[in-house]
Amino acid sequence: MIRVKQVSKRFRDRLVLDKVNLEVPDSKVIVILGPSGIGKTVMLHVMAGLLRPDHGSVSYDGLPLRFGAFADNRPILVQLGYVFQNGALFDSMDVAENVALPLKENSRLEDSEMKKRVKRTLERVGMAGHEALSPHALSGGMIKLVAIARALVSGPHYVFYDEPTSGLDPLMRERICNLIKSLRDREGKTGVVVTHDLEAAEAVANKIYMLKDGRLSTMGQARKEDYEETHS
C-alpha cells in the first residue's frame, strides 16, 4: 500500500499541494483527476521521490521515501514503474534498448534472458516487431506503449501513469485503458493514474480523486457532472 501523509508542496507563492492525504490499496487503480496545471504531475513526482515535499511523507508498505542529497530509494524504486507524459524515451537508444535499460542497470541477467524479457514485454503491450526502431520513428501512441513496456519490464508492483491517454486517438486511448485494467486484473499491479480525461479515468479507476486548490477529495456523481460541464 502507498500512503501519502499530510504532503504539502509550494512553488514560490503558489501552494500546489496542501496537506494531501492519500492511500492507494494494493492491486487497485486510483485516478487523480484535475485540469491541466493544477498539480497532478507534482503529486505524482512527490509520490515517486522526484520532488521533495515541503511537509509530509510518502511510504510504500511502511517503507518511507527519503529525500536528501544522498538518499537511496532503490528498494522502493525497483518496485515502481513510471510512465511519463511524453514517454521520456532515450533518443540515443532504439526501442529494445530503451525497454532493456532498467534490467541492464538493476539486474545481473544474461543478455539472452534480457532479450527474451524485452521481447515478451513488448509483445504484452502490442509493440512486438518494433525493437529496432528509434523513438523518433514512433507515433505518440507507440511512444506511450514503449514507455509502458519500459515501466513493466522489471516486474514492478506499482505503476504510475502521467496523462497516459493525452493526445491520443480514441482507438489508442481504449487500447491503453484496457492495458492498465488488464495489468491490475490479471497481474495485480497497483496503479496511480493522473489525467484530465474523465472518460479514461472512469474506464480504469477503482476510485477517482479530484485535485482542486491543492486538496484531494473523492469524486461523487455531483462533482463528476460539474467537472464534465467545466472541462467538456
Binding site: 521521490g49 522526484l50 532503490r74 515502481l80 513510471y82 511519463f84 521520456a88 532515450f90 542497470e105 538493476n106
Partner: peptide
Amino acid sequence: AMRVSEQIDALTVMGV
C-alpha cells in the same frame, strides 16, 4: 535536453 524531456527523471525512478 535530457532534463527538460524528463529522461533524467526517468533514470531516477528506474532506480538508476
